[in-house]
Amino acid sequence: MSLLTLTDVHSYYGHIHALKGISMTVEPGEIVSLIGSNGAGKSTTLRTISGMMHPSRGQISFDGREISRMEPHTIVLAGLGHVPEGRGIFPKLTVRENLEMGAFTVKDPTLVRERMDYGCELFPRLRERLGQHGGTLSGGEQQMLAIARSLMMNPRLLMLDEPSMGLAPVLVELIFDIVKLLNDKGVTILLVEQNALMALSIAHRGYVLQNGEIVLSDTAANLRRNESVQKAYLGIN
């Protein structure tokens, strides 16, 4: 059984038909990448899955459970984490407080501490800044915090929306190394990433979105070799 399944999902922003019948799956243990141009519907797909907006029709199931009409906090409790585009940290809270907010339903303080330590092991820079306000961190540090905060709920599926946006190349490589490490440790990943070449270099499979529709799906290796994908998204002529 697929961990995540979308079946004929339609979503709207007012009268704008943003998703036009999206059907896709994510299998346990995979990294699946969504690629496409700006406005193609990638972020909307993640927002619809995480409950930030509800589909007008279609079905979304996670681990065999219908989640199409669930509220975001319930979906998080089910084991689905979402790191949104722009990171979405709490700028006036400290790094420690941001991480604690990520574990808002975890009652065991020992477990909270263990998960915080794990996040700081992945991103040692966060440990150095536990008392610093989130809004004073660099862009790369904020992205580290956003990922570490999402891990505080120990998600089975982690959705990442443009994790490399605005980061220096050395930090992009670090973030992608961490994504691969998390996957190696058993976290399933759904990745939206403008840097399609980097995304497809670590993904198992991928979907190409255009104007709210999936126009191509294949293994990541085949998508990297696809001439139309190379020209449109990989900068290869």
Rank of each mutant, 00 (worst) to 15 (best):
M53Q: 15
S68K: 12
H54G: 11
R47I: 08
S61Y: 05
V76E: 00
L77C: 11
L80N: 02
M53R: 14
G88K: 09
G39R: 12
S43H: 00
F62R: 02
E66I: 09
L46A: 05
S61V: 14
G88T: 02
M70S: 13
K42R: 01
M52N: 12
V83F: 04
T44C: 08
V83R: 08
G81Y: 07
F62A: 03
G81C: 10
M52Q: 14
M70Q: 13
G81N: 12
M52R: 10
I67W: 07
I75Q: 13
V76C: 01
I49G: 03
G79Y: 03
G79I: 10
Q59F: 09
T48S: 04
F62I: 01
H73S: 13
G51E: 11
Q59M: 13
M52F: 15
G88P: 08
G64Q: 06
H82D: 04
S43V: 01
V76R: 01
R65A: 14
G39F: 07
F62W: 05
D63F: 01
H82T: 11
R57P: 03
Q59P: 06
I60Y: 02
R69E: 14
I60S: 04
G86P: 08
L77A: 14
I49H: 02
D63P: 04
S56P: 10
G51W: 02
L77Y: 04
S56V: 15
T45Q: 06
L46S: 03
P72T: 04
A78G: 13
E85M: 01
T45F: 05
R47V: 07
S61C: 12
T45R: 03
G79A: 06
G88Q: 09
G64P: 13
D63G: 12
A40Q: 11
G51S: 10
G41Q: 14
R65D: 05
G51F: 07
R69F: 08
H54E: 07
S61K: 08
T45M: 05
T44F: 08
S56N: 12
P55T: 06
G51K: 06
N38E: 05
G41M: 13
E66L: 10
D63N: 15
L77G: 12
S50H: 01
G41Y: 10
G58Y: 09
L77S: 15
G39A: 11
G58D: 08
S50Y: 07
V83C: 02
T48C: 00
G64Y: 03
F62C: 02
L80K: 07
E66R: 09
G39W: 04
S43K: 03
K42P: 03
I49P: 10
S43A: 00
I49L: 05
P55C: 04
S68Q: 09
H54Y: 09
R57A: 11
G41K: 11
I49S: 06
I67P: 07
L46T: 08
S68R: 06
M52T: 10
H54K: 15
M52W: 13
R47K: 15
G81P: 14
E66T: 15
T74F: 11
S56F: 07
L46R: 00
G41E: 13
V83T: 01
F62H: 00
N38A: 09
I67N: 11
I60C: 04
P72W: 02
G39D: 05
K42S: 08
T48W: 00
G41T: 11
P84Y: 06
K42E: 00
T74V: 12
R87Y: 01
E85P: 02
I49W: 01
R69P: 11
K42H: 00
K42A: 09
A40Y: 08
G81D: 09
V76P: 00
N38H: 09
V76S: 02
